[in-house]
């Protein structure tokens, strides 16, 4: 049952905890969507192009739902995206890693790893004490289920021959340590508050344990091996969140803020007047 009904009733500590929880959610979706859009007009077939474009738009839509939660705490879109310092983004680096040209296995493996994590994370927020978080979960979950099924189906399809399986294996080897960092907190000092307020009903290590089990079972079933990673020392040096981002994040950031900067904008145009339907 939600006990923190809306933005007007929050203490400073509660606001800080909500921000620490929501920024990573929003930034993960936003940055991963940016990467997915790179496949538009470059996917293997026209049909797969349409499907991945849709996944990108879904993720951008989810990012917007999460950004709207923090917008209600007093941020506008320029502050949230176009004028925020790139070091102040909280996404995990799994979302920001560049794609090697033509590495479709990376796209679908990354989506599978991410969306499996996302499903678990959303479940742990469905009973959030903060109503604007809890009431977004159902809409997002429905779309994430398509993403996960889409990714898993593609992975199985690529594994029909040994060359395809090898591309999947390479992607899993490279991405798995980065994916483990999805379960790192945005602001480690806020973790206890997030849990004691009931903003999230399960701990990050517990979610990570379930994720390891689910993904391992899946990859075992298709003869792809999952690397064994010791935590925390096995995490990459640039995992994102509160730790350093991958270098490629900076050029992505430069590109997506380019027009805004060149036109010396101070506001961001909306198409529809009302987004905040949370």
């Amino acid at each position: 049952m939600s006990s923190l009904s809306g933005p007007d009733v929050l203490s400073a500590d509660e606001r800080a905890a909500i921000e620490a929880l929501v920024f990573p959610l929003a930034d993960d979706e936003f940055v991963l969507a940016e990467r997915y859009t790179e496949w538009q007009v470059r996917a293997p077939t026209l049909e797969s192009d349409l499907a991945l474009a849709n996944v990108a738009q879904d993720e951008l839509g989810h990012a917007r739902l999460w950004y709207d939660v923090v917008a209600d705490l007093g941020y506008d879109e320029p502050e949230l995206l176009f004028e925020r310092d790139p070091d102040a983004f909280y996404h995990a680096s799994l979302c920001a890693l560049p794609f090697e040209t033509g590495d479709w296995a990376d796209a679908v493996v990354r989506s599978y790893l991410y969306d499996t994590a996302e499903g678990l994370r959303l479940d742990s927020l469905a009973g959030s004490a903060y109503a604007p978080i809890a009431n977004r979960i159902e809409r997002i979950t429905t779309e994430e289920e398509y993403h996960r099924e889409h990714a898993a189906t593609w992975i199985k399809r690529l594994c029909v021959d040994s060359e395809g399986r090898q591309t999947v294996q390479n992607a899993v080897d490279r991405l798995y340590p980065y994916a483990l960092a999805l379960f790192e907190p945005g602001e480690p000092t806020q973790t206890d508050v997030i849990e004691s307020l009931g903003l999230r009903t399960e701990s990050l290590p517990s979610l990570r344990g379930q994720w390891i089990q689910t993904t391992s079972t899946f990859f075992d079933s298709i003869d792809v091996s999952v690397p064994v990673v010791e935590l925390p020392q096995g995490l990459p040096e640039d995992p994102g969140r509160h730790d350093p981002h991958v270098a490629a994040w900076l050029s992505l950031y430069d590109d997506f803020t380019r027009t805004y900067r060149e036109l010396d904008r101070a506001h961001t145009p909306t198409i529809t007047s009302e987004h905040n339907d949370g």
Binding site: L46, D49, L50, A53, A56, E77, F256, T259, T268, P269
Partner: peptide
């Protein structure tokens, strides 16, 4: 397609992505 990324707002980005998607759909 580059303007999906270079859009100066989230709304524009979504619209550009949806438009490029439609064009590929038309190609199909």
């Amino acid at each position: 397609r580059p303007f999906i990324r270079q859009s100066p707002s989230l709304d524009r980005k979504l619209a550009f992505s949806a438009k490029v998607q439609d064009e590929i759909g038309h190609g199909q």
